[in-house]
Design a protein around this nucleic acid. Structure first.
Lengths: 203, 203
DNA sequence: TCAAAACGTTAACAAAAGATAAGGATTTCA
DNA sequence: TGAAATCCTTATCTTTTGTTAACGTTTTGA
């Protein structure tokens, strides 16, 4: 992964996005951005690999990624993230154990990166520790809310209902992501999604 | 919900369990336990309701709970927790918005409780704030790891594979929980689980 | 620019799951 | 203790999904 220096405009985008979670004063921000780097990904470049420790948490400045697993030689999409969102094989990042899936750019993408070691340094830095604990807590809690919804959708909804919900809530995803990835995301095959779409069309 | 005082033995069980997440020194612990209360639940008593804000995070001293949703008048189980684990309609607790599901005791159960307001007080208490941010972060991250696994099981495995995995990894759950709840947990109907079991028996 | 790859739809058949109902065993609790 | 409720299995029928393959379109990349 090639690391670049960060355009100042990118930093202000990031700072603004972080304000949803936590406010850094000037001193804290100056310390914080010392541990940031930027990286660009071509379409299909990988951010994380199965069997490897994910050493970064990323923030998507532009572009999008998909999370996927390999099963019986097949490629199964589990999640998408877009600009303005965080991306990581988070369990692997947190536990520093081998990851169980891949993360790949769907489009040419630019990410801001925080390395695990830098995160630990910041969590141990007297002037940043408290802010970073807070930051880490809010990011984790944000993910919990997303995951709770996703799990309950698998339990309470049929594939058709899940797709209808996406049409209502995640129209942007439907427009930007190939349909066979959407199918995996819903837990079904592309063929089955094609049938569901046809069924919805004529009723 | 009736709140009781807390047996000292319960406190030491809890303290030991928390050490997986964070260490409280004596002063911090003394402050912390001022905000704990205990509550007992009969079988089928509710800890959280759909449409109501979940004001507590609980720690299960004994017993077990199930998370469930109501859909078309039916009761659909989404998750189980047992003694030694935390329990909350966490998204509702975090956001203080109405919860989307129920939580109910599967057996007579005893829980230690932290109220949302008390949690906020501790997060703002100069001597506890840092420890509680850390605590909150680690609890949230713990849940993220569980949820990541659960979501990937829905995407990469068939119901039959999910059940086989439970037989390998969660034997305790299978023995303690009625089968039709397990079925919901796997995302299928009780009838369908019964067929899967029969299929597995003869092959 | 042009061949290869990727993508979405459709068809046909097999496999699995949902819905409903019935029957028997077990548990619950008044 | 005894009636009611709960629970698991089985059967039947319907619906949905999976699998495989074919076809035409679009996109990709050398």
């Amino acid at each position: 992964m090639k690391l670049h220096s960060i355009p100042t405009e990118a930093l202000s985008v990031f700072r603004k996005a972080l304000e949803k979670f936590v406010y850094f004063n000037e001193e804290e921000w100056a310390l914080f951005i010392q541990h940031l780097s930027a990286s660009t990904f071509k379409k299909k470049d990988h951010f994380a690999y199965e069997g490897e420790i994910c050493n970064y948490i990323g923030f998507i400045l532009s572009g999008s990624v998909r999370y996927y697993h390999m099963k019986d030689g097949e490629d199964i999409t589990g999640y998408f993230s877009f600009e303005g969102e965080f991306v990581s094989s988070y369990k692997s990042f947190l536990t520093q154990e081998k990851g169980t899936g891949y993360i790949q750019a769907l489009e040419p993408s630019t990410l801001l990166l925080i390395a695990y070691n830098d995160m630990q340094k910041m969590l141990n830095h007297s002037l940043l520790a408290y802010k970073m604990e807070h930051f880490g807590r809010l990011v984790a809690e944000h993910y919990i809310c997303c995951y709770e919804e996703r799990i309950s959708s698998f339990i309470t909804q049929s594939p058709e209902e899940r797709y209808l919900n996406m049409m209502l809530k995640d129209r942007a995803i439907l427009l930007r992501v190939p349909q066979h990835y959407i199918a995996n995301f819903l837990g079904i095959t592309p063929v089955s999604l094609s049938r569901i779409r046809k069924r919805l069309l004529y009723q």
